[in-house]
Amino acid sequence: MTAQGRRTGRDESEEERADRMWGELLQEVRVTQMGVQILFGFLLTVVFTAKYDRLTDTDQTIYIVTVVLGAAATGALIGPVSLHRLVAGRRIKPQAVEWASKMTFVGLFLLLGTMSGSLLLILRVATHDWFVPLLVAGVVVWYVLWWFLLPLWARHRAEE
């Protein structure tokens, strides 16, 4: 397909494109930020419950790793806001959009780890059955399918 055949119909400069992409990225980040911050907030309270002391060493390790992943995800997903504030007016918006996009992508991977760890801990505490890791693996595959594989497939199809 020729470059003309792939045109989107937009007639925008690099700066206008960066402005549009920045706005779209911020909308996407708002959704994920809220989810990760709520999840992280709930995770922070677990250690203060009476049940925490009765968790096995393995469950406490899962909890600690999950909290650290949640903190890292929160940082990565808030990073684009800080980046924008610190580089605003420096005429590097196209690069800032690229960097913020990478931060968001890392944040999504960390969010995947946070959600997986949370689910693993909850299901281990709720039931001690052998199938818990299988359920968690199934959910991880589900997230990977919808968050990464389907978008990559759509991107590949659009490039054909």
Rank of each mutant, 00 (worst) to 15 (best):
V144Q: 04
Q60S: 05
G35V: 10
F105R: 14
D59V: 04
L149M: 12
R6W: 15
H128I: 05
R124N: 10
V136F: 12
E16R: 12
G113V: 03
V31I: 15
A76W: 07
W99Y: 12
V67S: 02
L135V: 15
P94R: 06
A137P: 00
W153Y: 14
V87P: 00
R124P: 01
V67L: 13
R155P: 00
I78P: 00
V87C: 02
V36A: 05
E14N: 01
P133N: 12
A137W: 08
W153H: 06
R17L: 08
R90W: 13
P133K: 08
S82W: 09
V31A: 14
Q37H: 14
M1A: 14
L55E: 09
A88E: 13
W147K: 05
R17F: 06
V125A: 13
Q33F: 11
Q4E: 14
R54K: 10
Q37D: 10
I38G: 02
V140E: 06
V106G: 06
F109L: 15
Y63E: 05
L119V: 06
G41W: 15
A73C: 09
V97G: 02
D57L: 15
L119A: 14
F48A: 10
L135R: 05
V125S: 07
L123H: 04
R20W: 04
G35H: 04
E28C: 03
P151L: 11
F40E: 09
F131P: 00
L25H: 05
A50Q: 14
T104Q: 11
H156E: 12
V97N: 03
V65K: 07
W142A: 06
T127G: 03
L44V: 07
A126L: 11
G107Q: 04
G35R: 04
R85T: 04
V46K: 01
A154V: 13
T8C: 05
E16M: 12
R90H: 13
S82Y: 05
W99G: 01
D59M: 08
G70I: 10
R7P: 00
E16S: 09
R157S: 09
D19K: 08
S82K: 01
E24L: 09
D59P: 00
D19P: 00
F131W: 13
F109E: 07
E159W: 10
V81N: 12
T114R: 01
T61M: 15
E160I: 02
F105L: 15
T127M: 07
P80I: 09
E14R: 01
G41L: 11
M1S: 11
H128T: 13
L145N: 09
D53W: 04
V46W: 10
Q4N: 02
T114H: 01
L55C: 04
D53Y: 03
Q37P: 00
R124V: 04
Q60P: 01
V132G: 01
R54H: 14
T49I: 07
F105H: 14
S13R: 05
V29M: 05
P133D: 14
Q27T: 12
G9S: 07
Q95M: 05
I78D: 05
V87Y: 14
G70Y: 10
